[in-house]
Design a protein around this nucleic acid. Structure first.
Lengths: 222, 222
DNA sequence: CGCCCCGCGTGACTTAGTTACAGATGCGAC
DNA sequence: GTCGCATCTGTAACTAAGTCACGCGGGGCG
């Protein structure tokens, strides 16, 4: 029980939930642990639970017939995966898939409880709806990027994002291509060009940012 | 009052709403009429109401810095525009805009009532959430199309969609380009090619489908 | 009638995606 | 160690898409 009270506090949006609802959630929610690389869901799987992510990083991506892939968004610790589950319940056919990018710890909330929480808690509603909204704005931005932005700009953007606080991106060109929804060769070419200009240093499975400000200039400007 | 009971029945998802809630909606909802071409919302405008569309057709699109435009989705009669309003409330900065493609009749529901309805009616919740879900799957599909599909296939698709039951599309190449998020010249070239093959007949501001099955083959197949 | 705006056509060029390889590099088996 | 192999990366040639610049022509309107 103290264990259950423990995880709910990892979800910032739910900190102020009424005690009785906390208890209901703690009682009915099951904690799942999945290793890195697990398929959370994919075409053909229809989960009956709403998921809250406690630890880890889930990547939601779309694959085309050609096998090419593009990352739609990520679900981070403390966020809800309700969108994709909702998508399944409401949407009918879809082709997105979700993969654990790291080891993952999540809570599965049965649908009946979810409905109940939505009905009884304004805070929970706010949490769910703002999660939906956030995803949608993410997708809006993504559409704009794909449709209008040049690949080199998007690559610069992604490298900065993926490097985070550090300056190393431990990914293959293929994986970065999947992030951007383009082909591996395209990434290779642009990485090579960045290396030629001294902006990055590229090694097998790893790219190090050598001149962050140059990258930011590329990402921000034209 | 009978007038108010009138419009609520235009929303299929709300037909089974409890009588007291119907009354609340009827009392607080204001019916709006907007002429074709009106900007429903855009960057810099933050509506405080949730909108239900009774009549007409709203186009939600994204414009890039270059001025190029892409249609994200449409809101049709009987559907809710809650997504985009929710997007505003939850999302912070965004750049999408919504335009009336036809004369439009909509109901504005104040936010307080919306919250109340969500709290009290499972049916209303289902309506709102499935609307959200639908938009999201639409956006998923759109991302896949932009990222992976060839322009000629997407054009064929759009022409069929825009023609509806008939076989005329009364739009300029520029407008069709905005639908697809591409440049006018690209549309012109492909339309020209389709005309050369006898699939369509193109005139100023109008494209007539001459061989629908050929178009469907193009849209469906590779 | 003539002007002008708007939609459309076209050519030359750049960027992105595709196809088909050929090296390179690490890692495990032996 | 080193051999074999899968995986990652580089390159070249080609097609598709997007960009830029301009010309043409038809309608509408003064």
């Amino acid at each position: 029980m103290s264990l259950n009270e423990h995880w709910i506090d990892k979800i910032p949006g739910l900190s102020g939930l009424a005690p009785d609802l906390r208890q209901a959630i703690a009682a009915a929610g099951r904690v799942l642990r999945l290793p890195k690389g697990s398929r959370i869901f994919g075409p053909g799987q229809a989960p009956q639970n709403y998921l809250l992510l406690l630890e880890g990083d889930i990547r939601v991506s779309q694959v085309g017939e050609s096998g090419r892939e593009i990352v739609l968004y990520r679900v981070l610790a403390g966020e809800s995966c309700a969108l994709t589950t909702g998508c399944l319940l409401g949407g009918g056919d879809y082709t997105a898939e979700a993969t654990a990018d790291t080891d993952v710890e999540a809570v599965a909330i049965p649908r009946t409880l979810f409905d109940d929480l939505i009905a009884r808690s304004a805070e929970f509603r706010r949490f769910v709806i703002s999660a939906f909204s956030q995803r949608v704005t993410d997708l809006f931005k993504l559409v704009e990027e794909i449709a209008f932005q040049r690949i080199d700009v998007r690559l610069a953007h992604k490298l900065i994002e993926l490097a985070g606080a550090g300056d190393e991106v431990a990914m293959t060109h293929q994986q970065i291509a999947a992030e951007l929804g383009t082909a591996r060769e395209v990434v290779s070419r642009h990485v090579h060009e960045l290396q030629r200009r001294g902006t990055v240093v590229s090694n097998r499975g790893n790219i190090r940012i050598a001149d962050r400000s140059a990258l930011e200039r590329l990402a921000g400007g034209s």
